[in-house]
């Protein structure tokens, strides 16, 4: 599934650059397990269906989520309010939608609406059986980080 990951890395980097004016530093991707508890405060999940099954998840600390939202609104966000949730959900939606272009030769994918998970030490209910989860760490600003995690498996031909 590694060949399916690059479109998500490219899409994430492009979306942060074009949408937020931020340059990302992608780090080395690594495999992670379904039951790993994240050290993040917010995750936004997009389910993938159609000719592939899986999910793409962006996870970050609340301080970064508020900072990113501030770029979009021009305001300061002290709390994890509806606007922050909306912003992070829209960002993962654009990442997933843009990544479909890089995957269109492999399969046709339908993306879900984003689901948001809030709270420390939350876990993700991954909708895949066989596909391993690849986490891609990205550095942004001086000392902030977030993860984009992807699990995807083809279901073409039954």
């Amino acid at each position: 599934m590694e060949q399916y990951i690059q479109p998500f890395i490219d899409s994430c980097s492009n979306v942060f650059k074009e949408f937020l004016g931020l340059e990302l530093s992608p780090d080395r991707p690594y495999f992670t397990e379904k039951d790993t508890y994240a050290e993040w405060d917010i995750s936004a999940v997009i389910g993938l269906t159609g000719e592939a099954r899986g999910a793409v998840v962006i996870s970050m600390k609340k301080s970064l989520a508020r900072k990113i939202t501030g770029i979009l609104t021009g305001e300061t966000h002290e709390e994890m309010d509806d606007i922050v949730v909306d912003a992070i959900g829209e960002i993962v939606n654009i990442i997933a939608g843009n990544a479909k272009k890089g995957l269109e030769e492999s399969f046709r994918i339908v993306i879900s609406l984003p689901t948001i998970i809030l709270g420390a030490n939350h876990s993700i209910n991954w909708p895949t059986e066989k596909a391993r989860i690849i986490a891609i760490p990205f550095g942004v600003f001086e000392n902030d980080f977030f993860n984009l995690s992807v699990a995807i498996e083809s279901v073409k031909g039954g």
Binding site: E18, F19, I94, I95, A96, G97, K100, K101, E104
Partner: peptide, 27 residues
């Protein structure tokens, strides 16, 4: 005006009567 960037999405929208198609992020 959508994040759906795959060609098959653009074609589906145009076939169903979209006048034009803009892929997010917008500028």
């Amino acid at each position: 005006v959508t994040s759906e960037a795959a060609k098959y999405n653009v074609i589906e929208a145009l076939k169903n009567g979209a006048t034009d198609y803009i892929i997010k992020p917008v500028n």
